[in-house]
């Protein structure tokens, strides 16, 4: 299987001068179709890692950061950040990454259907039956015409997953996708997401502080190790 992500010595400095700490990834690769669970205690820098992987936070140090794009081949992310290439970074985010946020992150002025379609529209993809299929799997078809504020948190989260996958990205990044849900709903949402990842064959990185979720057979587990200078994420 080919790699979609290759990182070496990627780190970012966070916090104020006295209490600053490094969040670093010494070495990490992700093959296509692979699932990685990233865990650690609150405040250790999980979100920072996700932002770096999601191309929205510029790392302070990059040894190597390669993105294997479907269309453009190997893209050197370090170069894009150096040139402050918003267009290049944005277009990778639009085409190849799907985001699932902690509490949905849906646009309040759009209906559920429009919220799901937005990822396809931004990357310029036409409508597709695929969207209906995943909507059925996630059981959100009945409220396609509603606005987000008319949904429960669990329903919003399922819509958010549909949006993250609607444009068939190569990588889904999920940030504590079940933390706002009660345990039963959390289980349901989590297993739905796992199912979709397996069916669609995309890669996924899921950040969670929930230790139970780490008993997933095939998933790679990346854990945070707190050192003197900061946090290191490694397997």
């Amino acid at each position: 299987m080919s790699c979609i992500l290759e990182l070496e010595q990627v780190s970012c400095r966070r916090g104020e001068q006295d209490r600053s700490f490094d969040v670093s990834i010494p070495s990490f690769t992700l093959a296509s179709g692979e699932l990685a669970i990233m865990s650690g205690p609150s405040g250790c820098g999980k979100s920072t890692v996700l932002e770096m992987l999601g191309l929205v936070l510029q790392p302070h140090r990059i040894g190597r950061f390669i993105w294997q794009s479907d269309s453009d081949g190997a893209v050197n992310i370090a170069r894009l950040w150096e040139r402050n290439d918003d267009r290049g970074l944005s277009s990778i985010r639009a085409r190849e990454i799907g985001f699932v946020l902690q509490s949905g992150g849906l646009l309040p002025y759009l209906t559920v259907a429009e919220n799901i379609m937005i990822s396809r529209r931004i990357s310029g993809l036409p409508c597709s039956g695929y969207v209906n299929e995943i909507s059925e799997v996630l059981n959100i078809v009945p409220f396609m015409a509603r606005k987000p504020h008319q949904l429960s948190i669990g329903e919003r989260q399922r819509v958010s997953i549909a949006r993250a996958m609607a444009h068939q990205p190569r990588l889904v990044l999920a940030d504590e996708p079940t933390s706002a849900l009660d345990p039963n709903a959390a289980d349901a949402v989590f297993s739905l997401m796992m199912k979709l990842v397996a069916v669609t064959g995309c890669s996924a990185i899921i950040v969670t502080h929930d230790q139970q979720r780490m008993n997933l057979g095939s998933a790679r587990i990346v854990t945070a190790t707190i050192t003197e200078s900061g946090t290191e994420f490694s397997e």
């Binding site: 944005s90 985010r93 946020l101 937005i118 931004i122």
Partner: peptide, 14 residues
Amino acid sequence: KQQLALLRLLGCRR
């Protein structure tokens, strides 16, 4: 801000 940030995250340019 949140909505605009989301559009940026989903790949809209500046």
